[in-house]
Design a binder for these strands. Structure first.
Lengths: 336, 336
DNA sequence: CTGAAAGCGCTTACAG
DNA sequence: CTGAAAGCGCTTACAG
């Protein structure tokens, strides 16, 4: 079995109080005593039971991260950024997948709360949970940082990428290339899609073209690639692709790849017949043929910044609310 | 603040012992009393502190999963299978990324041990940690299931996909198409690559051709796609591609996609000039152009089977060692 | 600088 | 069927 602090105390011939003190280094201990205790710890290869410590400290040195889908590389990149920071500070990061559903997200968060994580990062939290006050409630109990997502009048912390600016640049890029008949592809429910859709409609209004909004299902699971492709093929019976629609703005790269694959099936040339622009700049966007024009969200930085902020919150408990914005960048490649 | 069992006891006018008994349902409690306690629990919205329970039970109702890289969809698919099973049994699953390095994998495992997870799943564990006995040691302390990875004389539990059979079928498929000059692409250190390489060499020996083994770096991170592409381009100055090499066997789909992208850069037609076969059947393999011929590892089932086995182990502590083998399946698409 | 004791929030013999 | 008490492995006032 594992050794306890009592075994160490016996071994070193001191009280458990003293052992505790040398472990935590929070009280003066005579050098000689300390060395004896350290030797005992080493000899027994003693590791304090984090459960027992947490029970008292109310701290677990761990954080929870909730993502809508592990198969969208956008999220794994962001998580990677979070992990980089957290590990350097000796925090454990636990990842949990909500499958993009509000009830599941809620459950995941509650589980983390039960487990006494020290803080939570929510990537692309469900709008429903933002609007109904759930996330604000959670933010009162524990440090929370949200990456992207709905944020009007919600008192919690945000690290946002400037999706508005990114969307504008993307749309203007298409327009500067002479496109007017631009269709818009989005997933079911995410604030990121909503922002983009609003801007898209505005632009279309300005150029006097009827907007075409296409909603595929869950946009954050890799299955969306196939789904989007199917949707595109259906679409080709309604619209004359290459004429009535000459360009697609896709809300993320996964959907953009779906469009690309659909074009291939339909024998449409990209970008000659159809231009495609994605969003995120996941590595997949460089792997297609042609490579995808897209908007870089600087995913790694989003994660790092969120982690840093969460750490700050955990440390001084100034619980909320604050917003950081990170720049996006248009990456022009071969699909436009 | 959160309520404790004491608050519930006071509210219901019973002892904490009784409250504990109705929560756990492990001792008889008079119906009337039970109802009073249940009402109090409901009223206070009481949730028992899992830390305190775990301190006594030595159980946390959670498991750890260590993966070499979250950006290789092979792993996220397997994890998905694990989560499906675990959630239905109300276990939390915590995912941790070793970045494919033995020291990091060790550290991740030790962290899980410290946190008293009830069991651990290792996906594609590092050969080094298998051979030096580390994983066997861990398996003595706690239920462990390994998915794939080195397994000679290591006493722990395995769920393996039949990579040998898969490799043979892939190679035979290429040969049946008339290929002899087959090159082999692998990542740095993984048992999966080793098995495949051995078989590859055997086949090449049989057909009397000098084997060409190309090692790219870390094969389990999505960066490998770019790396492989670069490696292929360099390779084109050493070999006459399409002649001295007419086919590539890649140890996973990520590398296969890298080869595909490289061929595109080099203006080589797939499969006319160069045939490519991958391994795993991650969804990405259907998204390329042409779609990839590959070997399906049934990732979801690998995860589910491993989770089920871990659960069995957790429940009856019959700690090791046992091996399940799951069939692979050749998926012929357009790259061969 | 050091230790005995109380306490974190639970569970489980033990006694009735 | 129910409760008082010990205990899980720690930390931290309190006293010296």
């Amino acid at each position: 079995m594992k050794y306890t602090i009592e075994d160490v105390a016996r071994e070193a011939g001191v009280s458990i109080t003293t052992v505790s003190r040398v472990i935590n280094g929070n009280y003066p201990v005579k050098k000689e005593t300390r060395e004896r205790v350290e030797a005992a710890i080493k000899k027994l290869n003693f590791q304090p039971n984090p459960l027992a410590r947490s029970l008292i400290n109310k701290r677990t040195n761990s954080i929870g991260v909730v993502v809508p889908g592990l198969t969208n590389m956008f999220f794994t990149e962001v998580v990677h950024g979070i992990e980089r920071i957290m590990r350097s500070r000796d925090y454990d990061v636990y990842i949990s997948d909500s499958r993009g559903r509000a009830d599941s997200e809620k459950r995941r968060i509650n589980k983390f709360l039960e487990r006494y994580v020290d803080g939570i990062v929510l990537i692309d939290p469900q709008t429903e949970n933002m609007k109904n006050g759930f996330i604000e409630e959670v933010s009162k109990k524990i440090p929370v940082v949200c990456i992207n997502g709905y944020h009007e009048n919600v008192r919690t912390n945000f690290v946002l990428s400037d999706e508005e600016k990114g969307t504008k640049e993307a749309l203007e890029h298409l327009i500067s290339l002479g496109h007017k008949n631009i269709a818009f592809i989005r997933g079911e429910s995410s604030y990121s899609y909503d922002i983009k859709e609003n801007l898209y409609k505005e632009y279309m209004k300005n150029i006097g073209i009827e907007p075409i909004v296409i909603t595929v299902q869950d946009g954050n699971n890799i299955d969306v690639v196939e789904n989007t492709m199917r949707v595109l093929i259906e679409l080709s019976s309604k619209y004359q692709l290459g004429k009535e629609i000459t360009a697609f703005f896709a809300c993320n790269d996964l959907m953009a790849v779906g469009v690309l694959n659909g074009c291939y099936e339909l024998n449409l040339k990209v970008p000659e017949d159809i231009a495609i622009i994605g969003f995120d700049n996941i590595i997949l966007s460089q792997m297609t043929n042609p490579k995808l024009t897209t908007v870089d969200q600087n995913m790694r930085l989003l994660g790092e910044r969120a982690a840093q902020k969460l750490l700050d919150l955990i440390e001084d408990k100034n619980l909320y609310s604050d917003t950081d914005v990170i720049e996006t960048k248009l990456i022009i490649r071969k699909s436009t």
